[in-house]
C-alpha cells in the first residue's frame, strides 16, 4: 500500500447509549484521520469513551444504542454505510480487527489455541485448506512470538502474557490493514507488559500495519505512538504527533494530565486535577473541561471548535482561537 495515503478517516462519529436515565454520550462528534502505517494512541481516563470509540469504529455495538452516526472511511469506502452483512463478511477481522480489553481472558476455554487463531480465516473463507490455515497461523505466531508448541494447547494452559499474544495473533491472522488494541497490556505484569510492547513495536516495523492503541497508561502509550489523541468526556480534545504531544501538550486538560504522570528517570513537579469528569448523561453545553480548568474564561460556556493550531496539531480549546 502506498505510504502517506490516508487510509482511515473518521468524521463526526457519535455513539450514544440508551439508559433509564437518558442517553449516555459516550462518543460525541469525534473526527480524526490516520495515515497508513502510523500508530495513533488514544489516551484518557476511565469512562471517557475509549472503548466505545473502538466499538463504534468496528461496529461492535451493544443492544442499547441510542444514536450511532457519522462516517468511517477505510481506504476511501464509507464502511458505516455498508449493510451489516457486508460489513461482517468483508470488513471486520478482514480489513479491520480488534483486540478487545481483557482479550486474553475472553478466549474460549474449550477450544485449542490453533483453532481460535484460525477462526477468522475459516469463517471468512480466506483460506481454502487446513494446511493453508495452519501456515497463516504459524506466520501470525511468529509475529507475536508465540511458541508453536502452544498451538495444540488450551488457553488455560498458557500464562496471561502468552494468551494475550494468542489474542493478538488472532487479530493479525487475516492480515487486516487496521488493528484496534484496547488496553492490550493493562492486566499484565510489568515485565510481560514490556515484552508485549516490544512485540507490537516489531510487528509495526515489519508489517507496516496501522494500529489504534487505546490506553489509560500514558507512559506505556509512548512506546508505540506516532500520533496521539486525548479524549475527555466523550470527545477528542487534542491530537498531534507524538513528539509534540508528549513534550508540549496544548489543551489545559492534556497539560495537567501529563503533569500528573510520575516519572522514573526525572524528578519533576507533580500536579493533579481537582474534581472529576462530568457525567455523560447530561454533559455541560460549553467546554466539558471548563469547571476543572485553571485557564477557564468567559468563552468557555460555548463549545470550543476543534482547531488546527499548528500543522497537524489540533486542539479543542478557545485559548487557541
Amino acid at each position: 500500500m502506498e505510504k502517506n495515503k490516508k487510509i482511515f478517516n473518521v468524521k463526526d462519529l457519535c455513539l450514544y447509549f440508551q439508559t433509564k436515565r437518558g442517553p449516555v454520550q459516550a462518543v460525541d462528534q469525534v473526527s480524526f484521520s490516520l495515515v497508513c502505517g502510523r500508530t495513533i494512541v488514544f489516551v484518557g481516563e476511565s469512562g471517557c469513551g475509549k472503548t466505545s470509540l473502538a466499538r463504534a469504529i468496528l461496529r461492535l455495538l451493544p443492544r442499547n444504542v441510542h444514536t450511532y452516526s457519522g462516517k468511517v472511511f477505510l481506504n476511501s469506502i464509507n464502511i458505516m454505510a455498508l449493510k451489516e452483512e457486508v460489513f461482517r463478511k468483508e470488513i471486520r477481522w478482514v480489513k479491520a480487527a480488534m483486540v478487545p480489553q481483557a482479550a486474553m481472558n475472553a478466549l474460549n476455554p474449550v477450544i485449542k489455541v490453533e483453532e481460535q487463531i484460525a477462526e477468522p480465516l475459516l469463517v471468512h473463507d480466506l483460506v481454502q485448506t487446513k494446511d493453508e490455515a495452519h501456515k497463516r497461523v504459524v506466520e501470525a505466531c511468529r509475529l507475536v512470538g508465540l511458541p508453536l508448541d502452544f498451538l495444540g494447547r488450551y488457553p488455560f494452559e498458557l500464562s496471561g502474557g502468552m494468551r494475550q499474544r494468542a489474542a493478538i495473533a488472532m487479530a493479525l491472522a487475516a492480515k487486516p490493514d487496521l488493528v484496534v488494541l484496547d488496553e492490550p497490556t493493562s492486566a499484565l505484569d510489568l515485565l510481560t507488559q514490556a515484552n508485549i510492547m516490544n512485540v507490537l513495536k516489531r510487528i509495526k516495523k515489519e508489517t507496516g500495519i496501522t494500529f489504534i492503541l487505546i490506553t489509560h497508561d500514558i507512559g506505556t502509550s509512548s512506546e508505540l505512538a506516532d500520533d496521539a489523541a486525548v479524549m475527555y468526556a466523550g470527545q477528542i480534545v487534542e491530537k498531534s504527533d507524538a513528539a509534540h504531544f508528549f513534550t508540549e501538550p496544548l489543551h489545559p486538560y492534556a497539560e495537567k494530565l501529563m503533569a500528573s504522570v510520575p516519572t522514573l528517570r526525572e524528578d519533576k513537579e507533580l500536579d493533579f486535577i481537582p474534581g472529576q469528569p462530568p457525567s455523560l448523561l447530561n454533559p455541560p453545553s460549553g467546554c466539558r473541561f471548563a469547571d476543572r480548568c485553571h485557564k477557564r474564561f468567559d468563552k468557555c460556556v460555548y463549545e470550543p471548535p476543534f482547531l488546527e493550531v499548528k500543522k497537524n496539531h489540533w486542539v479543542k480549546c478557545w485559548l487557541y482561537e
Binding site: L191, N195, N198, I218, G219, S222, A242, V261, T263, R265
Partner: peptide, 24 residues
C-alpha cells in the same frame, strides 16, 4: 529489568526495544 520495563512518557521510547527477560 523492572526499571528498564517502566516507561516514562517520552516520544523517543518508540524508537527502541526494551531489554527485558521473558518467562514468568
Amino acid at each position: 529489568a523492572l526499571l528498564e520495563a517502566t516507561s516514562d512518557p517520552d516520544p523517543k521510547n518508540a524508537e527502541t526495544f526494551k531489554k527485558v527477560p521473558g518467562g514468568e
